[in-house]
Design a protein around this nucleic acid. Sequence first.
DNA 1: ATATAAAATTCCATATAATGGAATAAAATA
DNA 2: TATTTTATTCCATTATATGGAATTTTATAT
Lengths: 265, 265
Amino acid sequence: MTKGKIQKSSNKTSPRQGGAQSIRRSIAILRSVSKHNETGARLHQIAKAVDLPTPTVHRILTVLLEEKFLSFDIEGKTYRLGSELYSLGAATQRISIRDRYHTSLQRISGQTGDGTCLVIPSGYDGLCIDHIPGKYRIQVLGFDINERRPLGIGAACLALLSFLPEKQREDIIAANAPRYMTYYGIEDKEVRSWIKRTRKLKYSNSIHIVSSESIGVGAPILNKKGQVVAAISMAGINSRMTSEKRRETARIILAEIAAVDPPPD
Amino acid sequence: MTKGKIQKSSNKTSPRQGGAQSIRRSIAILRSVSKHNETGARLHQIAKAVDLPTPTVHRILTVLLEEKFLSFDIEGKTYRLGSELYSLGAATQRISIRDRYHTSLQRISGQTGDGTCLVIPSGYDGLCIDHIPGKYRIQVLGFDINERRPLGIGAACLALLSFLPEKQREDIIAANAPRYMTYYGIEDKEVRSWIKRTRKLKYSNSIHIVSSESIGVGAPILNKKGQVVAAISMAGINSRMTSEKRRETARIILAEIAAVDPPPD
DNA sequence: ATATAAAATTCCATATAATGGAATAAAATA
DNA sequence: TATTTTATTCCATTATATGGAATTTTATAT
């Protein structure tokens, strides 16, 4: 008996994946690997990060490896992002974000004298994809090409986070809260108040957050649909970055962004 | 009751996917989309290309869209590669192939006076990821950034193909044979003979293949493990490209490649 | 406008692909 | 050499992905 004629339309805990569990998992794994791409990620590490049993992760890693979405270092037994991702990444946009704004960065750097960088969202992080050093003798360094920083921290990452849709923003803040605290001693409450300010001004200020001696200014790049796809920021040492200079810098960055035909998506 | 105690260890036709069918399918779909990224690919088109039923493809596309591995143009109902692929692609190598060889390309172009390009393998194609125009008044154009060409056709794509492992090479030739014939009127036999020559010389010559007025020279870039990861080529008009000039160009390209610390993978 | 065809999307019963616990093997460490 | 940790293989079980059929939307012909 108990034939169970009534179909359980929703089962206890499974969150309804829509017939794509393994794909979602693969993507989570790729994102996890990308966070440790410099050192390379180990099976165990990845499994813990994505919260899945080791054999499952192992199987998925094997496929991604075969398809060159990952590469494997046999000595260290570590996984990194693979060449096929590079190929596909290179083919994404007819003109990539980087190409599109490279000369803008150069001009901003030329006008302000300080270092400028171009940052895109990548998971819960901002990823720096281009950087022009400033010409002053004393420079703020730190956010160089291929580096990552939690969304919300620093002028560019704050600009990115601020203009994401609210739901996504909250997800990211929740996920990053521990990092805010551990690495920067900042409560998520504070990040939310910065966001509010940033949205009002249309550009971000990052004051003594990443480093106590530097101040940054950043602005978002929106695509044709109005979604944030990147951000440009400039950072200088305190003494140079008066509030007047900050406003002026923001003006320059915003003007440069406005001058470029926005990316389609 | 015919409980079927004997397990069918191998079933009739299924080609043993190792628990990753949907992942493989997703990747095939991404590759297919990348081939039509400029115009965008439609559901039907993709389904035909990867030889799967439309609903299945539709479901996978939906996930890839949600995960930003694809973007969707609502007017044209077309799919393109998405921002997350760009992010992951940008994070692949500490220094990307493009950054690593950009100045080499500039130097080669400076020394030879002709246009140079950097090409990576992408599926059955070579994908141009960087290009420096030459300085002569008359230039060979054609292979520009983001363009694709079948592996085997043109100096760079021939260099790439020639130094792949034999099995992979044969797979690619088999897959590309129809395109060789249709678009260039070339038999796969010919391609194989070029490969032989290229492997012997350590660089490729592409004579009157892509265009009857131009000649190209290319050389492979091998990573630390000795695998081809990219190729550099230079193309000039016939009158300039004497056999002497070709040898000299090859020398320059090979020297430039040798001067750069090879990519790890 | 209206009919017709083609492509996109939703639905859902079913089978099979993906799962992950357990066992085993291989490294790392004591 | 023993012990722990991490990686890999195995395979019975079931939840997941599948794809045929139905429906809706969009394009094209009349």
